[in-house]
Nucleic acid binder design. Structure first.
Lengths: 213, 213
DNA sequence: TCCATATTGTGAAAGGAGTTACAATAAGCC
DNA sequence: GGCTTATTGTAACTCCTTTCACAATATGGA
């Protein structure tokens, strides 16, 4: 069983390897990659070894192959369809973000209760009313949703998503939502991130630590 | 030395306690709080004990006092001034996000190289050209910056920030930036978060884990 | 072909983080 | 006032993650 931190690292490796590949690098050692991503080379080797043994001694890893293997391990060899609930500020930023496609993630639809939010500034992604959500999830077999609604609506939205069959939720609302154990919830909390920084910066003794998630 | 995970938890406690306090709750036990935030009560007691001993046996913790203590511990008793570099999609979402003020965090200015991005839709926060950044940081004594520029500009921006005196960076660009050891960098990577979810949802065996950061 | 060396894969050690368990104790009730 | 009980603070334990260290080995050069 691979840990959730390890999964996050695999994702980081993948992105860096994609960049390397684009610049024509064909082989990379764990040491070089470690320097790039700021992670101990032994850690990288161990993470990769978990997926199989495909490094070559004295040479390193083939970037092309490694990207393929990481994509497969992460389940993003095929494009993953994701929906977004809440087309407010954060929601719209996500809709406009170009970076997901490259990582095999595709926001296919957004939903918002407010009709005004549904007339975007030329998004290619449609914004539907909330009551279309359930059907859409079922018909398109969506398994992952992003919640970007205000805190007070988050639990209700989560309940709806779960009952429609959603299995994983990325929650931007600054509140814990309660879901059945088979549903995975991951939180992104911008205020928490900033407070963490404030703490470490405020701490009088200088720390050598780089805070990485 | 308190760990970075612990700091993130303190921030979570604080927000939940603020909500409780707003609903008139004056005392809360570690058990109740644990249920709300989804964290083991003993963990909460341990985190709080690190800051001092101010629970009352058989009663619990005073919400008011706890919020004050947590705010102090996190360094947000006074409003923390933060600047934003990059007024693209993510940047604008952050500028519009109302939730920071309540947590004692204030984005006081934004900077973008593109003049078109500087004419916002009525943000109350000014967006300045990049070449004003250094002076602003010095004059306003800013210590924390948010990077929300494309990956290829991130390192250059980080270098500028550091040389102007920034001590903590929240980096939304999907790339590691290299900074001197005394500067703290924290990463928010949306694609990584989604990939992590994809992995756990794709994994055939159903996991009981709730992924929390 | 043989040697020197860079690099992998992994066992073992070290280091944290989270959980359990319980003694101490304050509060409320009889 | 004394008893019962909920709750804290923390010591000990377990579990998990990361780092270290090194044998195995593929490569390139002589």
């Amino acid at each position: 069983m691979i840990s959730k931190q390890a999964i996050a690292r695999l994702s980081i490796y993948k992105r860096s390897l994609q960049l390397l590949r684009e610049s024509g690098v064909e082989q990379v050692s764990s040491q070089t990659l470690g320097r790039i991503v700021g992670i101990n080379p032994a850690q990288i080797r161990k993470d990769l070894a978990y997926l199989g043994s495909f490094g070559v001694k004295k040479v390193g890893y083939n970037t092309d192959r490694l990207v393929a293997i990481l994509s497969q391990a992460l389940g993003v060899t095929e494009v993953q369809k994701v929906i977004l609930v809440g087309a407010g500020n954060i929601g719209r930023a996500l809709l406009s973000y170009k970076g997901f496609a490259k990582q095999g993630i595709n926001i296919v639809a957004a939903f918002d209760i407010d009709p005004a939010k549904r007339h975007g500034e030329g998004f290619s992604i449609p914004v539907y009313p909330l009551d279309k959500m359930r059907d859409f999830i079922r018909k398109s077999q969506i398994r992952i949703a992003v919640i970007a609604v205000p805190a007070q609506s988050a639990q209700e939205v989560a309940d709806n998503l779960v009952s429609a069959g959603i299995r994983g939720i990325l929650n931007f609302a600054p509140i814990a939502v309660s879901v059945p154990p088979e549903v995975i919830v991951s939180y992104v909390n911008l205020a928490t991130e900033l407070e963490r920084l404030v703490y470490f910066v405020s701490a009088t003794d200088i720390r050598k630590t780089e805070v990485r998630r």
